[in-house]
Structure formats: C-alpha cells, structure tokens
Design a protein around this nucleic acid. Structure first.
Lengths: 170, 170
DNA sequence: TTGGAATGTCAACAACACTGACATAAAATG
DNA sequence: CATTTTATGTCAGTGTTGTTGACATTCCAA
C-alpha cells in the first residue's frame, strides 16, 4: 500500500499520547454531565444510579428476566436484587413468574415506574439532544463510532441486541 | 417558525428519541469499557477508581493543591482525604507545604506513584488508541466535540484549563 | 427419583460517596 | 492586635452499591 511517510508524521496526530489523554479526560468530565441530571431526579425519590439503570433496561426490554438484566448491567445478582426489591416494594416494578420456566421472574414497569422512567430519560435526552444539535450529524456519527469501538466485545453484543429489539418494536 | 419540513423530517433524523436513547446506552456500555482495564490493575494494588482519579490529575498537574483537586474531581474533602491518606501512606504521593501560603499542601507523585500512573494510563490509552485507530481522525473529532458539548459549563472550564496547562508544558 | 444446574433471596461485609461538627494553622482584614 | 476568612485535616454517622457466602426453589436429565 502506498501509505506515505506523512501518515505517521501528520495524518495520525490524533493518536499521540497527549491527544489520547485529552480523550480520556473528556470521557471523565462528559460522563459526569451525562449522569448529572438523572442523579438530581433520582435523589429526590431516594434512589441511586443503580435504580436508574434497572429502570432503563426494564423499560427497554419489558418482560426481561433477572438473569438477563444481570448480564446487561454487569453486576452480581445480589446487588441487583436489592435494587429490584425496593423498586418492587415501591410499586415501580411488577414481577411475573415465568409460565414456561417458573424459576424465571419477568420484570415490567408499572405506570408509576414508566412515569419515573419518562422523567429520567427526558432529562437525559434533553442534554444529549442539546449536545447533538450543537455539533451536527457528522460529529454525532463519529461519537457513536468511537463509543462502540471502545466497548468490550461482550458489551458490544449486548448493545446491538438492544438495538435490534427496539428495531422490531418500531 | 420557518423551519422547513425537511429539517424535521430528514436532516434532523439523528435527533429522534430513538437515536438519543441509543446514544445514552452507548455511553453506558462504552464507559464500562473505558474503566475496565484500569479497574483490573487498581484491584491488584488494593485501590479503587477514586485512587485512579487522584493519581491521574496529580500527575497531570504536579504540585496541585488539595483544594484544586477537590474542584476538579467534584467530591468532598472528606472523601478525597481518605484516598489521599492511603496514597501518601503507601508512598505514591508526596506532600509539600506551600512556600508562599503555608496552609496549602502541594501534591506530587513519587517515582512509585508515577510508575502506577504509567501502568494505568498505558492500559487506558491502549484501548482508546485502538478505538481511535479503528474509526479514523474524523470520527475522533466528532467524538470529542460531542463529549465537550455534553459537559457542564463548569466542567468544560476545568477541562480547558487542563488542556492549557499541558499545552504550556509541551 | 435423585442429583446437578439454573434462578432467585437473605445476610453480612467492604468501598466510597455524603453530611455535620470540630480543630488547626495561616493568611487577610479591620 | 483582634477578628474573620481560607485551606486543610479529622471524627462520627449514614446511604448506596458493590462483593461473598449460604440457602431455597425449580427444572431437567440420568
């Protein structure tokens, strides 16, 4: 291939340690912004980020099992269980014992749960929308490409699986 | 408003709720990948993410004060102090009383501290470099733009301040 | 039917964030 | 010089979220 010497000298400047360090710091600060709005809302209701994640993915895949959720969230079942218990007690999540396999618990948001989910995702989407609008479609495309390339292969599969699910619903 | 139908119908397709939701999930999964490698290394040494953040920014701004670090990291002094104490006890961070203002404590990484910082940032940069290389310079530019647009204004200032610091050193 | 695998629950513990109260030291201000 | 403000550190208590370990339930297959 006729890649010139200029490639390493100039075209790949975005791969310098300094550029990478800036990317790392950008991720750190941006993630703080990313979670700031939901955190405030959750705090009002006495919940934390763990509750948000559970609510988000139960809303995204209604009827998902505890085990499925476990793999998506990447925590232990005991950790998830504590969160689920409080959400169930508070009437935000409904449990249905599996019909085919009665070991499984299928999870659904109640109306109250859906209402909180809306409140949370509206806030988070508002910030995301504002950022997207500021930078334009091309930058957004690059953003998504880099994020996907940064995921662990396993997480990438989970991510695509969720995208496919939603695709079918629509 | 004279926004044409095409704007809402086609050109702004990347601003749909579904696109935004995918962006939100991409952030979630990508951040997991982003922290996975350092987390493994930290665990070996008996440290957590809080230690990593402190080490990172002390390395980035050597001689920074406790108060300065507090604002960058966005935690309470009690929380930071716990982390700093263990890093100092273990000989990774050195403290110098300020010459001009002797209330201030200036923080530096020792050789041991720099060594761990290298280990951590090498791992994190490796993943970032791999992702960057996969997608190319244009996508990286978009990635950085979106992240910056997502930050809180205060965090954006901190981010730029750090970039300027580094710019002077080089 | 019995033993193993899958699934979910309860209890206890550790890390790390928070608040609040207080102490010390030094700088700044009157 | 007395007072206030600033920077830092510490102690105690609390909450969220992660972990392990132990155990119950259910399903399936030998």
């Amino acid at each position: 291939m006729a890649i010139s010497n200029r490639s390493t000298g100039e075209a790949l400047l975005f791969l310098t340690d300094e550029q990478l360090r800036q990317g790392i710091e950008a991720m750190f600060f941006a993630y703080r912004g990313f979670t700031a709005d939901p955190d405030r809302i959750l705090d009002k209701h006495g919940y934390g980020r763990a509750h948000h994640r559970a609510i988000h993915f139960i809303n995204c895949v209604p009827g998902t099992t505890v085990n499925n959720l476990l793999h998506i969230l990447g925590v232990t079942k005991q950790s998830l269980n504590r969160v689920l218990r409080s959400l169930i007690e508070d009437g935000l999540v409904e449990v249905q014992v599996g019909q085919k396999d009665r070991r499984e618990r299928h999870l659904y948001l109640t109306e109250t749960g859906q209402s909180l989910e809306q409140e949370l995702s509206n806030a988070q989407r508002a910030r995301m929308r504002s950022a997207y609008r500021d930078v334009g479609a091309d930058a957004v495309s690059g953003f998504r490409q880099v994020l996907e390339a940064m995921m662990d292969p396993e997480m990438k599969r989970a991510y695509w699986k969720l995208r496919d699910n939603e695709g079918m619903d629509k």
